[in-house]
């Protein structure tokens, strides 16, 4: 399946981008002309510029991720040490202090670092940016696969919502999401012969718990 920005999706992005741009333009005009009587005070122009940058960034990320998705058609060869990869990903996302004692030993995953970092980045970004932060990271090692489990502090997703968010370009309630994070994780993991699933929340838990499995390099080959 090849992703393309359909007219409907492009309309959504351009509407948000143009609305932000227009707000800045109107505010700049009001600085010269005076604030309309119906406004108590001039809204914060800096905040509107930040919004404009954010919208432009979102469109840029969406186009880049769409290209990434379209280029992700096959399994990549290469191996990565899981522990080292997790340390790099957590450091990259300023989350290493949350996990001073990584619950994992060194094992070789049948996945090149570039692709593993993409998968971990999407999972960690989702927790950090859109879901209130990372609450737990667990790693389970089986005979032939490693399971990485990431829980966040967000409101969580019901099963049906999770299925919906697995489809490209579906944004649930996250205004500044391009709707490609989870679909990219699913596609990248599937290309490497793994699986992605949502763990049912424990009674004391409210966030989303996302689990992925990736095959280990067979011991004889490692």
């Amino acid at each position: 399946m090849t992703l393309a920005l359909t007219d409907e999706i492009a309309d959504r992005f351009f509407h948000d981008l143009l609305t932000s741009a227009r707000n800045v333009r109107l505010l700049a005009g009001w600085v010269q002309e005076g604030i309309p009587k119906s406004m108590a005070a001039l809204p914060d122009i800096r905040q509107n510029l930040i919004d404009l940058d954010a919208q432009a960034g979102l469109l840029d990320r969406t186009l880049r991720r769409t290209a990434l998705w379209n280029g992700m058609t096959r399994k990549l060869s290469g191996t990565t040490d899981l522990k080292g990869a997790l340390i790099r990903a957590l450091s990259e996302h300023d989350l290493i202090s949350h996990m001073p004692h990584l619950p994992v030993r060194s094992v070789a995953l049948a996945c090149p670092d570039e692709r593993l970092q993409l998968i971990l980045a999407e999972m960690l970004d989702n927790a950090r940016i859109h879901a209130g932060g990372l609450s737990e990271l667990r790693v389970l090692i089986d005979a032939d696969r490693a399971v990485i489990v990431i829980s966040d502090e967000g409101p969580g997703l019901e099963r049906a919502e999770f299925d919906k968010a697995s489809e490209p370009f579906v944004r649930l309630c996250v205004a500044r999401s391009c709707g490609l994070g989870l679909p990219l994780v699913i596609r990248a993991v599937a290309c490497q012969g793994g699986e992605v699933w949502r763990e049912a929340p424990r009674r004391d838990q409210h966030g989303l718990t996302l689990a992925i499995s990736l095959p280990l390099v067979p011991e004889a080959a490692a």
């Binding site: 609305t19 707000n23 505010l27 119906s38 509107n48």
Partner: peptide
């Protein structure tokens, strides 16, 4: 829904 746009159209 945009208060800035609303103010401009009202003006």
């Amino acid at each position: 829904d945009n208060p800035i746009e609303r103010a401009q159209i009202t003006r």
